[in-house]
Amino acid sequence: LRDLLPYPREEREAWVSLHLSLKASLHLLLGEKVARAYDRLLRLELKNQRSGKRAAYPEAKSALLAAKRWVEAIGQAKRGQKVDLEGLPTAPHHVLPYAREIRAAASALGIPYGVLAAIVDNEQYGGDKALGLSRGVREAADSLAQGLAEVQGHAPLSRTLGLAQMSWEDALKQQDRLRLFGAWDPARPFPKTETEARKALEDPYLNLLFTASRLRGYFNALLGLPPRDTRLLDDPWLYYLGPAWHNHPLRAQNLETWEDSFHGFFKGLLYQVVLEGRWHLEGRTLLPLKAWGPGAQDPAPSSLPTLTP
Rank of each mutant, 00 (worst) to 15 (best):
E276S: 10
R198D: 01
L223F: 12
R103G: 01
G268W: 01
I111V: 10
E45Y: 05
P6V: 03
R9G: 01
D3V: 09
N122C: 06
P299K: 11
R179H: 11
F181M: 10
A140I: 13
T193S: 14
L109K: 11
H93N: 08
L133N: 05
A291I: 09
A200S: 00
Y7S: 12
A200H: 00
D260E: 14
Q49N: 06
G268P: 04
L29T: 03
L172P: 00
P186N: 04
Y271H: 06
Y98M: 03
W15N: 02
L201N: 08
L85G: 01
Y125Q: 04
P288D: 13
L222C: 12
I111C: 02
Q152K: 14
Q174Y: 01
L22R: 01
R214H: 14
P156C: 10
S51T: 15
Q174E: 15
S62Q: 15
R50I: 13
Q152Y: 15
G136R: 15
G126R: 03
F219Y: 11
I102D: 01
E11M: 12
Y57I: 02
G277F: 07
T90P: 02
T160P: 01
L208V: 09
P288I: 09
L255G: 02
H19T: 08
A197P: 04
A55C: 06
R216F: 09
V34T: 15
H27T: 05
E72F: 13
E10Y: 12
Q124W: 10
L18I: 10
K68V: 10
I111P: 00
F219Q: 03
D260T: 13
E259W: 13
G268I: 07
G283L: 04
Q49L: 14
N220A: 12
E13N: 11
L269S: 04
L163R: 00
L238Y: 09
L26W: 03
E86N: 11
A149S: 12
H93Q: 13
A60L: 09
A105L: 05
D142N: 14
R79E: 14
L4H: 03
G283Y: 00
Y239D: 14
Y239C: 11
K290G: 03
L222P: 10
E276R: 13
L85I: 08
V115T: 07
E196D: 00
A117L: 07
E10N: 12
V151K: 15
T285L: 08
L46D: 11
N220F: 12
A155R: 05
L222W: 08
A91K: 09
A14N: 07
E194N: 00
R79M: 07
E150M: 10
P236G: 07
L18H: 06
Y271T: 03
A108D: 03
G114F: 02
E256Q: 06
Q297A: 10
E150T: 08
Y38E: 14
